[in-house]
């Protein structure tokens, strides 16, 4: 037997774990095979349990465990890091609970907070640099940790309650389309809910549009003064949140 054939048999035993796969090995190997399979299943369950404590609390231990079993069968780990395994779990939850969309959104929020925690480092733009920006032409660079996700339920409120160990609100559908922003400020992951207009503006900025082009687009779509006021308000919030880490383009200051 080649090493490749042996490793395929071993993989099938770990993933499927039935007698047919175990039959590829001599009977004397059964106790050892059981140890490896137990380790494999234990690692997956521990990884997902530790990655989604709030979702687990919301769903209940039994339902969460069933979701783990379904996910493990459909999606065996593939990355070199176990930290990547939770990435597809919100999708699995979305399929398992199509009528309870807060479940997948809760899981996504937990996943995004963990990813922001280890995202690439970036220094927020300084006050001096802000003073020199030519806002008409500046293209803003956003923090690499920023993630933007449309949401349709009150999952953030549920997360905040459960994380704070208080009684969570009942799940609700939002009346207006909304979005969730997640990023890291210093060494803390943060999130806030916003409307789709700000989320779309941030997506536009991240795609490379200048701040001037954003303002022009807003003015064309609605009342000019209101648009300018909205853009100014967002910008102030982005600076406060340390979402802006630099600009591309000329500055108004001379050296």
């Amino acid at each position: 037997m080649t090493l490749l054939a042996l490793q395929r048999d071993f993989r099938d035993w770990l993933h499927v774990g039935e007698d047919r796969q175990a039959a590829c090995f001599p009977p004397s190997a059964r106790p050892g095979l059981a140890v490896y399979q137990n380790n494999f299943r234990g690692q997956i369950a521990a990884c997902l349990g530790e990655s989604f404590p709030v979702t687990r609390s919301w769903l209940g231990g039994e339902a969460f465990h069933k979701a783990i079993v379904v996910h493990a069968e459909r999606t065996p780990p593939s990355s070199w890091t176990l930290d990547a395994y939770p990435c597809d779990f919100p999708h699995t939850l979305g399929r398992l609970y199509p009528d309870d969309r807060e479940v997948a959104e809760l899981a996504w929020l937990e996943l995004a907070l963990a990813e922001a925690f280890v995202a690439a480092d970036a220094v927020p733009i300084s006050a001096d640099a802000l003073a020199c920006i030519d806002w008409e032409h500046a293209v803003l660079e956003l923090a690499p940790s920023l993630q933007i996700q449309p949401i349709s339920t009150n999952a953030p409120a549920i997360w905040s309650a459960l994380a704070g160990e208080t009684s969570p609100p009942a799940a609700e559908q939002l009346t207006e389309p909304a979005a969730l922003l997640i990023w890291r400020q210093g060494e803390r992951s943060r999130f806030r809910t916003t409307d789709r207009a700000e989320a779309d503006a941030l997506s536009l900025i991240r795609s490379g549009s200048s701040f001037g082009a954003l303002c022009t687009g807003l003015a064309e779509a609605s009342d000019g003064d209101l648009a300018t006021a909205a853009a100014a308000s967002w910008l102030a919030q982005w600076i406060t949140d340390e979402l802006i880490i630099g600009t591309k383009g000329e500055t108004t200051c001379t050296a």
């Binding site: 080649t2 090493l3 490749l4 042996l6 490793q7 395929r8 071993f10 993989r11 770990l14 993933h15 050892g32 490896y36 380790n39 494999f40 690692q43 065996p76 780990p77 593939s78 990355s79 070199w80 176990l82």
Partner: peptide
């Protein structure tokens, strides 16, 4: 040991046969 084969990662230190091929 080996941990991965053809896109599957066990995240465990799996045993090897000790022969010339390995």
């Amino acid at each position: 040991c080996w941990t991965r084969i053809e896109g599957f990662n066990s995240h465990d230190l799996l045993p090897l046969p000790y022969d010339e091929d390995t």
